[in-house]
């Protein structure tokens, strides 16, 4: 039974990381009808932005001056700003220019955007962070290693607490993010406009909703969600690699498809389902870890074939 609960906790934590990336996919697909394949890379960029800002803030001595939680909040805000800007850039550079092109074009261009983000991290993380750190901290500045090396994510969540308290904090933060997103989507005019666009873009435009503005805001909010996903991922995983984005992107997309690509709650259910399948296959099948991802993707394929609208997605019927 101890093993079951251990696996249950692992699956829950892994599910949290998949869920937030999956929500990014769902939000972008909902308002733009586009699969933004660089979601995983944006999340990893967020965790690298936090690690870089951490080095610069350490160099500037801010941790000695400000309360620890203020510094952590600042780091998350910095990560969120970077990812929101990156979300916006993704929209402007790799989706908007292909507005009237084939559906394949934004698909390919967001894959290319993911590669660009990854390579920028690999090439520029070290020189950029070290330059800023040295500027604010002088010769004793904290420096980072090449962006292509594994990076140690700083202990920002419950640094003096137990592993269990850190894990519970990760789950709570995910729950709070989901609650805030729910309130935003259902209790604010902007959120409801987003939902309206997701259901029918043309009708939304005719009712006076500024679709372009809502699209931009969606990318900004999606970017923030992905930054927090990167933060939680780093706090859970501790070692981050610049090329983790493709894997998390694939898992997040799969989760969104399983749950229902346009549905935020579908992303949650899909993320959790995928994580539970992976972890329990690894845990209960002898030498199962090697096959866990295969089994998870078989689940995705089964859904695509037998329930393409996802677990809680609605069937779309096109009237001629």
């Amino acid at each position: 039974m101890e093993m079951f609960w251990g696996l249950f906790m692992s699956a829950l934590l892994l599910g949290c990381t998949y869920t937030l990336v999956a929500i990014g996919f769902s939000m972008f697909f909902g308002v733009m009808d586009v699969v933004v394949f660089c979601c995983g890379d944006i999340a990893i960029f967020g965790s690298f932005a936090i690690m870089g800002a951490y080095a610069a803030m350490q160099s500037a001595g801010l941790f000695a001056v400000l309360p620890f939680w203020v510094c952590v909040a600042l780091l998350i805000i910095i990560g969120a700003v970077f990812c929101a800007a990156l979300g916006l850039m993704t929209h402007l550079l790799s989706i908007k220019p292909f507005h009237n092109s084939s559906e394949l074009m934004p698909l390919l261009s967001t894959i290319a955007m993911g590669t660009v983000i990854k390579e920028i991290l690999g090439l520029l993380f070290k020189p950029a962070v070290n330059a800023v750190s040295k500027m604010v901290g002088g010769p004793d500045a904290m420096t980072v290693v090449s962006g292509r090396n594994p990076q140690a994510f700083p202990a920002l969540l419950m640094p003096n607490g137990s592993v269990l308290s850190r894990n519970i904090t990760i789950i709570l933060i995910t729950a709070v993010m989901l609650l805030l997103l729910f309130l935003f989507l259902n209790r604010t005019k902007m959120g409801m406009s987003m939902q309206a666009i997701s259901q029918n873009k043309e009708l939304s435009r005719m009712t006076g909703i500024n679709v372009s503005k809502i699209v931009v805001i969606t990318f900004l909010i999606g970017g923030v969600m992905l930054a927090i996903s990167g933060f939680l991922l780093g706090s859970y995983q501790k070692l981050m690699s610049f090329d983790d984005g493709a894997m998390y992107g694939a898992k997040g997309f799969s989760a969104a498809v399983v749950g229902g690509l346009r549905n935020t709650w579908g992303a949650v259910i899909g993320g959790m389902l995928l994580a539970f399948v992976e972890v329990f296959v690894s845990g209960y099948i002898p030498r199962g870890t090697a096959y866990s991802s295969i089994v998870a993707f078989v689940v995705v394929v089964v859904f695509i074939v037998f329930r393409p609208e996802g677990i809680i997605g609605e069937k779309s019927v096109e009237k001629v």
């Binding site: 101890e2 093993m3 251990g6 696996l7 906790m9 692992s10 934590l13 892994l14 995983q237 070692l239 690699s241 983790d244 894997m247 992976e278 972890v279 329990f280 690894s282 845990g283 002898p286 030498r287 199962g288 870890t289 090697a290 866990s292 991802s293």
Partner: peptide, 22 residues
Amino acid sequence: KGEEQVPEDTTDLNAVVQKIKA
């Protein structure tokens, strides 16, 4: 008592850890 081979890009080994414990 047990053996496990994981994909090269594995980052979450908690399931393996639980197996080791058990």
